[in-house]
Design a protein around this nucleic acid. Sequence first.
DNA 1: ACCTGAACACCGTTCAAGT
DNA 2: ACCTGAACACCGTTCAAGT
Lengths: 239, 239
Amino acid sequence: MAKSAPVPGRPRSRDAAGLPAVTPDRIIDAALELTARHGVETWTLRQLAGAVDAYPAVIYHHVGDRDTVVTAVVDRVIAKYELPDENMPFRDWWRQFLTNLRTVFMQYPGVARRVALNGPSVQAGGPTVDRAMRTLLEAGFDQDEAAMVCRLLVSQACLFISLEDDQRRAREAKDKISAGWGAPPANPELSGLATLNESVQGRLSDPEKNQDYFAELFDYAIDRVLDGVEKRLEEIRGS
Amino acid sequence: MAKSAPVPGRPRSRDAAGLPAVTPDRIIDAALELTARHGVETWTLRQLAGAVDAYPAVIYHHVGDRDTVVTAVVDRVIAKYELPDENMPFRDWWRQFLTNLRTVFMQYPGVARRVALNGPSVQAGGPTVDRAMRTLLEAGFDQDEAAMVCRLLVSQACLFISLEDDQRRAREAKDKISAGWGAPPANPELSGLATLNESVQGRLSDPEKNQDYFAELFDYAIDRVLDGVEKRLEEIRGS
DNA sequence: ACCTGAACACCGTTCAAGT
DNA sequence: ACCTGAACACCGTTCAAGT
């Protein structure tokens, strides 16, 4: 766009061309939409500039480098989920919270990974962290272990969501990720391997089960780790 | 390297220059070493070519594109860990196995993430998967749930290791990741947030505790999820 | 202050040409 | 068959110059 040499009749300013002024807000809006469609790591700064009908340097002028833009996008996404009712028992609260997190984050591929890595900004994440810590303290964890559990559960959810993000994307490109797995093993000694392959075969032949395989793993991962946290809590209470 | 124009006295073939012939094996060796030092996502094909005193096109000729090289590197790394004694009870076996996995993978940043995403190749991962599945089947899981638990535990370990990889790398660059967290919250209503910040403060002021924070999270994550898997097993046995 | 347009230093990948 | 050396189409980032 805007690649042609200046033509006499062509307006030389955004104003004269009838284009809206570029603002930081409009840039983040565009970046959010690009993220929803392509994932946060996939769009380029040149694409973003194109989406607001501007030159790459304009992004730098109004917002900053790519990382700064992405940070702003992440903050926007974090503002989108709702926190469960604070009167719920801690296990139900977390189950609900992490499920909400997933449905929102899955709409913006790559955001979960960013949050796992950097955490949320204090600004955007503060209220969430406050509520989350309270549920754990009320449940009976001491200060340090509550902080640990908080980190564990948020990481658990974000990491498994980011796994879903990336595997979905890889599948779209190629369908040969699990190639080789599913076929009976050449070595008949490997009976455990054969069993896994049978299970994989069952999935591959039933397309709708295969569809929700990722979601199933997420739920299973969350449930098992919550079981583990609950058991730990019983140990604390018992001692 | 080899950037100057051809000089009369300069030998024009690797042989004449006394350089060893480039082989796929030598290329993977160099890639493995670059991975150990810089991480699998960080080195460039041009660096790899430089490491074997060759042009980038030579890598393509002998091995293939970047992804093919990385896949070969991952297979090499997988061959490096040892499997625990097969007579151990399933929980101890997994605890040991995932710990071994961590010590090996941590030496090659980025490999854990690749394994979480693509799994190992059938060639390299077959024996491990076989043993892993057997422990779960013997413990009492049915075929499908054993496959699920296997996937959960390997993913759990790889994802948390990859989190360590990336956070270590980020810390080396900047020390402001947790900037803002640790300071008392501006809003006095957020008592849960204040508690978290106290815990963070305690860590930051005790440097050796901060050092092992990542390792601590890994162990905690593995122990909680194993607790959860064990509890699930008791449910199955009871019914 | 805001925007243009070109440039810089990279990247993975491809390819004709040499030996 | 193996290697050279240059080129292609990208990328994030910077900057002097225009309005």
